[in-house]
């Protein structure tokens, strides 16, 4: 009996480390450059996601707006929040683009067409991005230490079970397979 103890101890240590410690240790967390509130902007600046996150005429998706779009309103401090004051002082006035960490950033060889999913497949933004658009603060960006990609698109506690949290190839393939739209690798890879 005593002979099995070191083996069991080793296995137990690794099981605890692998299940409890590793999933935390693999990510490093960093804050976004600006404490941006989608909620405030949805109330005051635009009604729909497309008002800021627009499609270009050729169908490509412009993604996060650039500074000149922000500076259209925030040329000077408008409100009373510290976040806005910092944003204007650190980015607008010196005309420096904030280096946003993109939760949905994809590997270089992935071709993802927003317009095919939004306009053709009629998916709503929250199918993938959750309640990102109604949030008051940006979540810290959790970056995988090895691969460099975000842990998830928009992880909130109640969302883990219901929708796709991370944008992995298996998640894409699963849906495409259900839709009968899985033809070849080059459908989504470039």
């Amino acid at each position: 009996m005593r002979g099995i103890f070191p083996f069991a101890a080793g296995a137990a240590i690794m099981l605890v480390a692998g299940w409890a410690g590793f999933p935390r240790a693999i990510y490093k967390s960093r804050p976004q450059p600006v404490d941006f509130s989608h909620k405030v902007h949805a109330d005051k600046a635009g009604q729909k996601c497309e008002d800021c996150h627009a499609f270009r005429p050729d169908g490509t998706f412009a993604g996060i707006p650039t500074l000149d779009k922000c500076a259209g309103c925030h040329a000077a401090v408008m409100g009373a929040t510290v976040a806005e004051k910092n944003f204007v002082e650190q980015y607008v006035t010196p005309a420096r683009e904030p280096q946003w960490a993109v939760y949905a950033r994809q590997p270089e060889n992935v071709f993802f067409s927003h317009i095919a999913h939004v306009k053709r497949a009629q998916l709503t933004c929250d199918t993938c991005h959750g309640d990102h658009g109604a949030s008051d603060h940006l979540l810290p960006y959790q970056e995988d230490r090895v691969s460099g990609y975000s842990r998830n698109i928009w992880q909130t506690a109640d969302r883990v079970k219901t929708t796709r949290a991370a944008m992995t190839m298996s998640a894409c393939v699963e849906c495409h397979r259900q839709q009968g739209l899985e033809h070849s690798c080059l459908d989504c890879h470039k």
Partner: peptide, 14 residues
Amino acid sequence: HGRWHAAKQQAAAE
């Protein structure tokens, strides 16, 4: 296929 992707995207936009 990069051009094919772009053409498909354009078709979706239209």
